[in-house]
């Protein structure tokens, strides 16, 4: 088996721009199958831009992205649609469709891509909602629930089709610590149960140290990756001081 086939995602020499301003250059990394992989870095470093380029919401200036050995950047629309079915994206604010109830939000991808009957789809929607702690909220509209609940419902929608790869954009931002840790546990469960590959954009150090298998850290100065590896190893020390500071700075209160 080739190295590329073992990897769920292969990003090669990717250059990304935001509003015509180049934010990342020559980014190369790979994510292994069933791995929990974090993309970390300070605010404005281009984490979300990188994610948008990987999933096809933005077009890279240069470079290529492969999913399970198949090129995504160079794929024609039909191939792209096939590949899109295999991954889910959980947006920062949930990105739920406001005119649909939570149940309908989750049902839409199932209606689009599976031959399941309507009642079974609504059962799956209820199950997904219960998995993220929103049992009983099936008929609520996104405007009727809190921001944290919208985020969890967005995750339930991302999981609707049992994707092989799930991307998360800042999953714990805006959540209380208990809910954030429950979300971490859910992410671990999904990976362990279905061997799903998980890619998370975040700067929540507790999540990173808690569930990450490996991470890459982006930096504005180099417009690229400054460190790559398991968080525990990177936190131990040299070669990159910025990474150590990022992963070990917990409080400014001394004593």
């Amino acid at each position: 088996m080739s190295a590329q086939a073992q990897n769920a995602i292969e990003v090669t020499s990717l250059a990304c721009a935001y509003d015509d301003r180049k934010v990342l250059e020559n980014v190369t990394f790979s994510v292994r199958d069933a791995e929990i992989f974090f993309i970390v870095g300070g605010t404005g470093v281009g984490k979300t831009t990188l994610l948008r380029n990987i999933v096809g919401l933005a077009t890279p200036v240069h470079g290529d992205v492969h999913f399970h050995g198949r090129s995504f950047t160079g794929a024609d629309p039909a191939q792209r649609r096939e590949m899109l079915k295999t991954f889910g994206l959980s947006f920062q604010g949930g990105a739920l469709w406001t005119s649909l109830t939570l149940s309908e939000n989750i049902a839409l991808p199932l209606e689009e891509y599976t031959p399941l009957p309507r009642d079974e789809i609504s059962h799956i929607a209820a199950f997904r909602l219960s998995q993220v702690g929103l049992a009983g909220f099936e008929n609520y509209y996104p405007s009727e629930i809190s921001g944290g609940m919208r985020k969890r419902a967005g995750l339930a929608r991302a999981l609707a089709l049992d994707p092989k790869i799930v991307f998360f954009d800042e999953p714990s931002a805006g959540l209380d610590p208990v809910t954030a840790r429950n979300l971490d546990r859910l992410i671990l469960d999904i990976r362990d149960t279905f061997r799903t590959t998980i890619v998370i954009v975040s700067h929540d150090v507790d999540s990173i140290l808690g569930i990450a298998d490996r991470l890459i850290m982006l930096d504005t100065a180099t417009r690229g990756i400054v460190a790559e590896g398991p968080p525990a190893e990177l936190a131990k020390g040299p070669p990159e001081a910025k990474v150590v500071e990022f992963l070990t700075r917990r409080t400014i209160r001394s004593g």
Partner: peptide
């Protein structure tokens, strides 16, 4: 868990 989600109905205040 799935069986459990089938029995827990919608919150009453919403109907």
């Amino acid at each position: 868990q799935f069986a459990q989600s089938l029995v827990s109905g919608t919150r009453p205040e919403h109907s």
